[in-house]
């Protein structure tokens, strides 16, 4: 029952309706000036980029195994069972580990604020809970951004590639990257040209596994190392005790004779 988004760059006309819909849903300012900004920021969760006559959209990928959720010391991020990776601002202490850990560079920060929050696309969890689709998908005039069941969207994307192999690159960006995401991209040009990290570089391993390999060993490491340290302490001090006791004994024997 996990939901997802499918963005088909070949159907996108670059109208930026998704940007304005997103801003409205999240109470963000949106005017011509913001529309002209070609990078994501704390006040722009999603952006439609133009290169030659082709378009590409960027937004949080809502990873199946999100790095942001695994690194956050206070668990301010979590993946809901419906698919969105959401942020609980009241927990956040502002360490910004999520920002350095995210391979897609999605979490942005309110650098000018005195009580700053991390900002990113949260996939309209309220709308999804109410059985609706996300603001960007609802507003999209061409269906380039489509909301639906994750499994359904994967098979639909595969169908589209099969039906017109000349239009699409033969891959779905987001299907396997960092263990799979909840946002899929179909395009005729490599997503990497628009700033997406190269699939080969980020790999298919879920990011939390990189630190998990070490963190999983800690519960075993603590008792073993404690025992080892205690043992060393005992041995090195036992030597002193024995030496002292022997000296005492010798003294007594000496005085006894």
């Amino acid at each position: 029952m996990s939901k997802a988004l499918l963005y088909d760059a070949t159907m996108c006309i670059g109208c930026k309706q998704c940007e304005s819909g997103c801003a409205q849903q999240n109470n963000l300012p949106y005017d011509d000036k913001v529309a002209a900004e070609s990078v994501q920021s704390a006040h722009k969760y999603t952006v439609v980029m133009t290169k030659d006559d082709k378009f590409m959209r960027r937004l949080c990928m809502h990873c199946e195994k999100p790095a942001c959720a695994s690194v956050c010391p206070v668990g301010a991020f979590h993946k809901t069972k419906e698919g969105p990776v959401v942020y609980d601002v009241w927990k956040c202490i502002g360490c910004r580990y999520c920002m350095v850990a995210c391979v897609f560079g999605q979490p942005k920060y309110e650098w000018q604020s005195l009580n700053p929050r991390v900002r990113k696309c949260i996939m309209c969890p309220d709308l999804i809970a109410a059985g609706k689709q996300t603001a960007c998908a609802a507003i999209c005039p061409t269906g380039a951004t489509k909301f639906g069941e994750r499994d359904d969207l994967i098979s639909e994307a595969k169908d589209r590639i099969r039906q017109s192999p000349s239009t699409y690159l033969p891959r779905i960006y987001g299907l396997n990257e960092v263990g799979g995401t909840s946002v899929f991209i179909l395009s005729s040009v490599n997503a990497e040209e628009y700033g997406y990290p190269a699939s080969a570089k980020i790999g298919d391993t879920p990011m939390p596994e990189y630190t998990g390999r070490v963190m999983d060993r800690i519960p075993d490491f603590i008792p073993v190392w404690t025992l080892a340290l205690g043992g060393i302490y005992w041995i090195s001090h036992r030597r002193d005790e024995v030496a002292a006791a022997e000296a005492e004994e010798r003294k007594q024997n000496g005085s006894g004779k």
Binding site: S70, P73, C92, N115, G212
Partner: peptide, 20 residues
């Protein structure tokens, strides 16, 4: 820290998977 006044959250909202 962006919100240092919440540094104590570490003690109540624990995330044992986090290196931090």
């Amino acid at each position: 820290l962006g919100r240092p006044w919440y540094i104590w959250h570490q003690l109540i909202y624990m995330n044992p998977h986090s290196v931090m």
